[in-house]
């Protein structure tokens, strides 16, 4: 019997650090003020969106520039369910996932007929179709948008402070849920196949992996998570319009920036990328449009110096893995694979 280990020394440290970090974030209301909590919650939504896009593009090779379709869909579901049926916002966030997964199935059937750059354009076109459809719904404010009714918002919690805490913890919980789900997926048999697809699609297919089915499943799963995050984002904003809900800039361009900077095709990449993105944004935002140019410069610099992103560079140089994803064969001193 051969024995296989997942953890390495760096991943044990990584998991311990992640545990401490999570505990500190869960208790953030004790040490952070309102503005910081709002910023952290926004960061959590970006960690989740970027992790989902990383799964889609970094692992499954599906470079979508239309994930705003599902962010917006989730957002609009929150408003539609609340306004039309009086569904409480927290429940609507949970419902947004499965509904978006269902919607993503016919979308996938359509756009999976396209490859490479055409696929990317196709996803964008789909997102635009979603945006135009949303602007036609008069009951949801049409093209100018609508606010979440005060009655729904006030019913969430007895005080404003509690409501904000609820939203903070929901954002943290969703981000952690997305990361854990991706980790469990990558640790599984399907994760092994996905990693193979990431590295070499041709060889993956030749090794018996049904690449098409795997990509389809990843697309639907990603839509599920993205829409839940979308609903959460617009619960935080309390107002939605077609242009903000289906913004390619906010929900795709920034997300791609985060993943590319952090390290595409690595589960750790989006976390690093989000921290870098928010550091840049918080320090440079006062500079106006110059800030976007500087972000572009950073993106180009990282792509030239470290094409695999910051985490990719760390893995290459130091061989670290923050999470125990690798399968290491335990060898006996003789070099033969045997159980200890």
């Amino acid at each position: 019997m051969s024995r296989v280990e997942h953890a390495s020394r760096s991943s044990r440290v990584g998991v311990a650090l992640a545990g401490f970090g999570l505990a500190a974030l869960a208790m953030a209301p004790l040490w952070a003020d309102r503005a910081t909590l709002r910023l952290l919650a926004e960061m959590f939504t970006y960690v989740a969106l970027a992790s989902l896009w990383n799964l889609l593009a970094g692992y499954a090779g599906l470079v979508s520039v239309g994930q705003q379709a599902f962010v917006g869909l989730g957002g609009y579901l929150l408003f539609a369910l609340g306004i039309q049926f009086g569904v409480p916002p927290l429940a609507a966030v949970l419902v947004a996932g499965p509904v978006a997964a269902l919607v993503s199935i016919p979308v996938a059937l359509l756009i999976f007929r396209l490859r490479g750059a055409y696929f990317a354009i196709g996803t964008w076109v789909m997102a635009e179709v979603f945006r135009l459809m949303a602007s036609q719904i008069a009951a949801l404010g049409g093209g100018s948008g609508i606010s979440l009714p005060a009655s729904l918002v006030l019913a969430m919690a007895p005080t404003r402070q509690w409501r904000e805490l609820e939203i903070y913890w929901l954002a943290l919980a969703l981000a952690v849920a997305v990361l854990v789900a991706i980790f469990v997926l990558l640790r599984s048999r399907h994760g092994l196949a996905l990693t193979a697809v990431r590295d070499n699609e041709l060889a993956a297919q030749s090794s018996g992996i049904d690449v098409r089915r795997l990509k389809f499943a990843v697309y639907v799963l990603t839509a599920f998570g993205t829409a839940m995050i979308g609903a959460l984002i617009f619960l935080m904003k309390l107002r939605i319009s077609p242009d903000t809900a289906f913004s390619v800039n906010d929900w795709t361009a920034f997300v791609i920036f985060i993943v590319v900077i952090g390290g595409i095709g690595r589960i750790e990449g989006p976390i690093i990328g989000t921290i870098v993105f928010f550091l840049l944004r918080q320090t440079l935002a006062d500079l106006g449009s110059l800030y976007l140019m500087m972000m572009g410069t950073v993106a180009i610099a990282v792509m030239l110096a470290a094409p695999k992103g910051i985490w990719g560079l760390i893995v290459e140089r130091l061989g670290w893995q923050m999470l125990p994803l690798q399968r290491r064969l335990v060898l006996e001193p003789s070099g033969k694979a045997r159980a200890r």
């Binding site: 048999r189 060889a203 018996g208």
Partner: peptide, 23 residues
């Protein structure tokens, strides 16, 4: 056409699990 981001062992495990359809 190796899976360059995986270990040598993982490369073979992928093919063994999926090509032969085994857990």
């Amino acid at each position: 056409q190796p899976f360059v981001g995986m270990t040598v062992f993982e490369n073979v495990v992928v093919a063994a699990a999926f090509g032969a359809g085994e857990p």
